[in-house]
Every structure is written in C-alpha cells, then in structure tokens.
Design a protein around this nucleic acid. Sequence first.
DNA 1: GCTTGACATGCATACGTATGCAAAGAATAG
DNA 2: CTATTCTTTGCATACGTATGCATGTCAAGC
Lengths: 336, 336
Amino acid sequence: MAITSHDVARLAGVSQPTVSRALRDQWGVSASTRRKVREAARTLGYVPIQAGRTLSTQTSGRIGIVSAELSNPFYPAIIEPVHDELARLGYRTILVTDRGHEPVELEPIIDGSLDGVILTTTELDSQLPYELRRRGVPFVLLNRDTRQPEYDACVVNNTVGVWDLAKLLLGLGHQRIGAIFGPDTASTGLERRTGFAQALGRLGASLPNSLTFSGPFSSTTGSQGFQYLWNAKPTAIFCANDVIALGAVSEAAALGVRIPEDVTLVGFDNIPMSSWNIFGLTTVGVSLEEMAMTAVGLLTRRMDDTERAVQRVTMKPVLTLRSTHGRPRALDAETH
Amino acid sequence: MAITSHDVARLAGVSQPTVSRALRDQWGVSASTRRKVREAARTLGYVPIQAGRTLSTQTSGRIGIVSAELSNPFYPAIIEPVHDELARLGYRTILVTDRGHEPVELEPIIDGSLDGVILTTTELDSQLPYELRRRGVPFVLLNRDTRQPEYDACVVNNTVGVWDLAKLLLGLGHQRIGAIFGPDTASTGLERRTGFAQALGRLGASLPNSLTFSGPFSSTTGSQGFQYLWNAKPTAIFCANDVIALGAVSEAAALGVRIPEDVTLVGFDNIPMSSWNIFGLTTVGVSLEEMAMTAVGLLTRRMDDTERAVQRVTMKPVLTLRSTHGRPRALDAETH
DNA sequence: GCTTGACATGCATACGTATGCAAAGAATAG
DNA sequence: CTATTCTTTGCATACGTATGCATGTCAAGC
C-alpha cells in the first residue's frame, strides 16, 4: 500500500540501497544519482517506514515520558517543555500514563519502540527504575527521586524551598501555620513534609498535627484540606505543591474566605497556572524549562554512553512573591 | 541486546514460529508446548519487539492525536478521555503537537507508525485531512470541522449552543452584551461567532462591533478581551470557549470586577476546569467523554473498512448553569 | 494392518530499511 | 598504455515477528 524505497529505486533506475544512501545524505553517492533519487522520492511522496528503520538501526528516535493524568495541571506544565526540548533535538515524544493505583504498563516502554524514557511520577520505592536499568533502557528521573541516589536524576532541592517558605511565613508574623501535605510515597511529598516541619522547628515555631492534612497531589486534596483546616483557623497554610494550593485557593473563594486578608496560602513548583491573575499564587520553584532541558541532557548523555557514571542535578528553587501572602490579620490590625 | 523470540525458542526447544503462535494464543499449538514456551518467555522476560510486529502485521496498535499545546487546558481535557477510550480498546496514544503557526509535521503521522489519527486542531481550510485521505491513513475530525462535510467527524452543534446562551442572557434581562470571539479560521470560531450574532438578532437584540473582540482560543485572549470590552461597560460577555472565559474571569478578578454582580460571563465547551469552584463558569457543552468515545468509534470503524461511507455525528450541547451569570445590575436594583 | 484425517510443528519467506563488502567504473600517476 | 587508487553502485544480508505451506506424528476407523 504505502510507497517503499523499492518503488523509489525502480522509478529512479537505481537499487534500493542507493535510495537509502542518497536520502540519508551519505557520502558515496554521486551528485547526479542523488538528484535523480530525490526527484523520484518527491514525485512518489516517499516517506520511510519507521518500523523498517527501527528494526534495522535499533533506534526509533522516540522518547517516552511517564506522567500522571493530564487533568492534573502539573503534568502538562512539565511535559510541554520536555516535548519542546526533545523536538529541538529531533526526538519525538511518546506519552505513557501512570494511573497511580496500578503499576505503569511496562510493555510499551521496553518493546524497543523507545530510545529512552523520562520518569516524572516515580515513587520512592518504585521498581520501574530498577526494571528499566535491568533491561538496558536509558532513563532519567525528573522532579521525583528514589530512596537511594543510584540513578540519573534532575530534582529540586525541596529542603531549601520549604525553608524559604517557612522563613517567609514567620517573617510576616504568622504563628498559627497549617499545612496540606502530599503523599509520603513520593520524594517530593516526603521531603517537603519533613523539611517544612523541621524548618518551622529550627526557626522557633511548631506545626501541631491538628493543623496538618495530607492527600495526593491534586486540587481535590487542596480543596478538602482547606475545608478541614479552616475550622482550626490558621493564619497561613503551606501547600506541598501548586496544584494543591490552587485547589485550596479555589475552595477559599467558594467559602468566601479572602486571600490574603483572611489567610495566607503558599505553594511549591511555580507552574504556569499559578501566575494566572485570578490565583496570583506566592510559591517557590525552579524554571520548568531549565529542568526539562537538564533532564533531557542527562538522558541523551546516558543514551550515548550507557556505561557512564550516574549523574545527578539538584536545582535550587527560588521564591516568587505574588499576591496570596500577607501579614496575619491580628498583626495587621495592630499596626493601623 | 534485547531478548527475541529466537532466544525463547532456543530455551523452550522449539522453533521461532511456534513461539509466536504459542504466545499469541493461536490454535494449532499443543497445551504442553504452549506451557513450555510460556515458561521460557517468562524466565527470559521476553517482550516482542514492536518494530518487528509492525513490519510484519502492517499495524502498530498506535493511534495519533493531533492537539495544540498542552498549556491550553482544552487539550488535556479532550486528550484524556480519548486516551482512556483508546486504552480500553487496546490502542496506545501518541501525541502529535500542532503549534498553529506552522503546518503539522506530516512525517511522524504517515511513516506507518500510526494505525489512525484523531484531529482536534483542524482549521477550516487545512490540507491535512486531504493529505491523510490521499495517503490512506484513517482519521476522524474531533470537535473541529472542515469547510466541506467530506470526512468522518464528531462535532458539536455550535449553533444550538450559542442560541441557548443568547436566550439565557436576554432572558436575564441583559441588553448590552459583548463577545470575545475565537479565530474565524476554525469551524468552532466561525460558527460560534456568526451563530451568536444571528441568535441575538433573531431574539430582537444586537451586537455592535464596538462590543466584540477576537483572538486565538487562549486564556490570554480572554484576559485582553475583557480589558478591552470592560471600558465599554457591557453587562454580559459571551466567550467563544471556556478557555477564553477563564481568562476573562481571571482578568475580572484582577481588576476587582465582581462576577456575576458587575458582569455576567459565559463560555462554551464545559471543560473540567470550568467547574472548579473559583470559576464556577456558566457554560454550554457536550460530555467530552461521550465525544471522545464517539470519535474513537468512528475511527475504529474507518480502520476496519476504509471504503465505508463517510459518517458524521453532531452532538447537541446542553447548558450548565453555575455562578457566573446573573441579572444586570440596573434591573437587579429595580426589583429591590 | 492399512488408510484417512486431525493436529502439531518446522521451513521458508515477507514486511522495509540500512550497511558491510565486493565489484565495476573512472580518474590519476607513472 | 598500464597499474594503482578512489569513487560509485549493487548484492547480500541483518534486524524480529508473523504466517502460508509442507511435513511429520499419532489416533481412530475399517
């Protein structure tokens, strides 16, 4: 059905291998032959069949990115720059969805149709990295880490990030601080929880259990968490990521709670949506573009040399002050 | 490097074809042989190389979905149910990005690596459908249509949708109605623009040019459009899709304009984010799940029979009343 | 016991591209 | 004019899986 290199060869009056060489710009083909082949290929609208290429070269030019559901805005936000950077390098991006409640389907990753994989949903104890290494599939961890630092990875320094936020909140005069945490099964969840609690402690404050709530990294968690915590009347709430924070902001709006007048809310990640002016979320994070580029760089280097030493990059997040933070109401009244 | 069916054959003491047949559950393989092969495959961790399969069967089990940037929330919203439905049928989804300002890259679509394609970004005069038909690649139009109804498609009845919205706005007593339209190069943009203007006309109202704004289907358009229109003080604004409407709501919040007290805003599509309670957007639309299932159904039928008659489905949108609509302020005051 | 048939398995090959190697042809040097 | 080198091209084959066809085996029927 489809046009093959044999068809082009016949039309150009050359052999099939010559077609392959001519179109792939290899030396060893005369200018006139190349012109003939080019012309024939153009006439027929020839496009090389990818499967043939993959089988022959053992390389597909496809990179997989394992992400969670797209309805979680964090994932589109990280997939997009990864996709762009891969495209710049001539790779195509294949989406592999991780539903969370069941392990990622392994087959489409290790069936030879991917040259490499970027993992963005890794849980601390996930077997996937181990499995991929065992099978010789190059991969890199993006944003989330495993328990042991034994794989290529590009992650955020969560400890520094939550420290900055803790300092910000305390500096504004907040005493009664609540927190909506993510799952302890992910490095981001665990590190941000323990890091934030420790930071408060070191800075002379505390985080009572009654002022914490936990759930998956979803806007629903933010919404439920805000409902739950609001009864305990904190003056500020730390959210373990922006998606949770956006859910909390949204719930606050529904309850008629004003931000930042009635409560301060901060997030983590600095996803693009947080800058929408209806949210204006004060948050901390790294450039997702830079993170994507770094991760892609690590991956391509791993693909070039599977034996090279593990390389890990930890990016330092920076604080972005927008409009969801303010002084606690009591203090505010004092100064007037 | 990777394990092949030959390795499995050697270990199981059978021939390679027998491995293929045994693992593919074909008749003509004895129970004992099948058991041996299964065992050997499990031991070696054998996964069939996709390229070999594709080359041999001329089918990849991959479906492409052409969408715009994921930063536009409409696309994650439609990709997700399409992906789920395809997964249910055993297909994997490949994302193909349409950047809008340049034509979609054709090669990865027609290089034999896709069994079919779902187009969600088709412009009225796009050459892509023509090209795909010419090359025999099965496809279906989703949401957006071409100028002539010559391809399989699942679209929304935009005329009915905007009529319902026009009726709603006029019913609430709005007289001074503005609109933020999408691009005329897309069926959704054109139909919603002309449809809305006509509906107002038939219902005895009008839409002055000074109260309209146009731009791409992005939240930025909503934001800019709201800024622009707000000077002319409309009491209600129709937005050509939800993404625009969310941008407008967001901008209104930034300007301190209250919704629906100061202005009514309505959208079109009913994407999941519109139901976030910070937005609570009143809008009209079809179930994206249903739309996705319908489109996938059309596509698979086309793949089964490339000769079958063109089939087109038009879905009737329904109104979802949330909290961004209300009576105009003047009237509201009267009744008090 | 021989024939017939059903079933299980292997052989050969196709799918389309890329590449090592050999052969043929052209160009250069002596 | 011949010998040598370099360039261009084709032949053969590999990549891994799936399947038509032929062969082999075994059991049942007469």
